[in-house]
Write a protein that binds this DNA or RNA. Structure first.
Lengths: 147, 147
DNA sequence: CTTAGTGCAAATGGTTTGCAGGCAG
DNA sequence: CTGCCTGCAAACCATTTGCACTAAG
């Protein structure tokens, strides 16, 4: 499930290129936040990203994390997932897939599913909407939290 | 897609029975909030429910709406849906189905899909989680907001 | 009668915003 | 150089909570 260094690097590079095309700046904060999201499998909250990157960027602010996450969302590189209550969690995999969220501890795991990938067009046709993203959250309890 | 008066009445009655079984009280606020959710197809926010019922219950408070929505969620009668930004929207149909949300105007439509209904067990088996609910949100733009 | 539930208002907490100064291009 | 971005702190707003009063059983 992990992405591999060279794939991560190429995605970060693609991000840099998208910024250049839009006349926006590839700051180290933006690149590192995106890289961290690609590296981790933990679907962190904004706060968790902030704390994790604070070690390398002691001066970075939480507001910058939020602004960058919004930018990444607009570019379609990151989607917000997770339970309706509690803070949003961010997923660096924008392709349609299934998230399984534990209501006890907040852990989220991904499941790939080729059925989901084909749904976007079917839903667009049935609804008349232009679809830009989708979320598939299953809420429940992981084995450790079941008791 | 509308439910019909007798089906609504039977669901409200089932809610009343669940409350009795748990030793909780069937107040008029609780019953009317649930009835309103079953009647409307608009996936209202807590604020919208509050304003709609204020005509009939001028003294009802927004806090009661939130408390009742949490109760209905615990009972599995209502699920929160909608885009990650902005307030939660509530859906009186707890069966797995697809929501299509307009990022422009916030409108949400439902799509029934028998494939989704069968996923719960498949996901439970693949993930090892106990699944209690699921949300399937497609985000995009409705015909009117597309421009 | 008893106590769960309500209404009110204040508190909470995730997220957003305004602005002065700092780097990318 | 130029102005887009950042960091900071204050503002915002959906949601939650504490408490005295009300009504369901």
């Amino acid at each position: 499930m992990s992405l591999g260094q060279e794939l991560i690097a190429s995605r970060v590079e693609a991000f840099r290129q998208m910024l250049a095309d839009r006349g926006q700046r590839a700051t180290s904060q933006r690149l590192e936040i995106y890289r961290y999201l690609l590296e981790t499998q933990l679907h962190p909250t904004a706060e968790e990203i902030y704390r994790a990157l604070r070690e390398r960027f002691p001066a970075m602010s939480l507001a910058t994390v939020y602004k960058t996450l919004e930018l990444l969302g607009d570019l379609g590189l990151v989607v917000a997932v997770g339970p309706p209550d509690g803070p949003s969690r961010y997923d660096g995999n924008p392709e349609p897939h299934i998230n399984v969220t534990c209501l006890g501890c907040g852990a989220i795991i991904d499941l790939e599913d080729e059925q989901v990938a084909g749904w976007k067009e079917a839903v667009a046709k049935r609804s008349g909407y232009t679809i830009v993203a989708s979320r598939h959250d299953f809420l429940g309890f992981c084995p450790a939290c079941r008791k």
